[in-house]
């Protein structure tokens, strides 16, 4: 199934309604050649299921982990990714851009 922006926030609502812990990650700023535009969403549940994207698949793994922490402690987080990271080959953007991602729990 192709996930549209509509499916993504609709899914967040459905997951929450069914009793799961849910977090929403949103691209809030981009610099350079970022793969997904500002406003793109990734929704994550407490078992690590996710829908949507905040990059071309480069940093989603890390966002999902951070989102599960946010579901656990309820604190929003601001994450930043770029090629300058030491671990760029693992959780960075190969395209050379930089992005900021806001992660918040649905309460």
């Amino acid at each position: 199934m192709l996930a549209t922006e509509e499916d993504i926030l609709g899914q967040a609502e459905a997951w929450k309604k069914s009793g799961r812990g849910v977090a929403i990650a949103t691209v809030v700023e981009t610099w350079g050649s970022a793969p997904r535009p500002v406003g793109s969403h990734l929704v994550i549940d407490d078992e690590g299921r996710f829908l949507g994207s905040v990059s071309g698949g480069c940093v989603e793994g890390d966002v999902v982990t951070q989102a599960q922490d946010a579901i656990a402690d309820g604190k929003p987080r601001m994450l930043e990714y770029g090629v300058a990271d030491e671990t760029a080959w693992r959780v960075g953007l190969s395209c050379g851009g930089r992005i900021k991602v806001y992660v918040e729990r649905v309460d």
Binding site: L9, I24, R105, V106, D107
Partner: peptide, 29 residues
């Protein structure tokens, strides 16, 4: 994000009405 705001946003989209969710990035409000 408050669940009631998420539900309201989804309802607005289904009704083809435009809206904006404002998030204060310092407080999360």
């Amino acid at each position: 994000m408050r669940f009631d705001l998420l539900r309201a946003m989804n309802a607005e989209r289904r009704a083809r009405r435009a809206c904006v969710l404002v998030t204060d990035l310092a407080t999360g409000a």
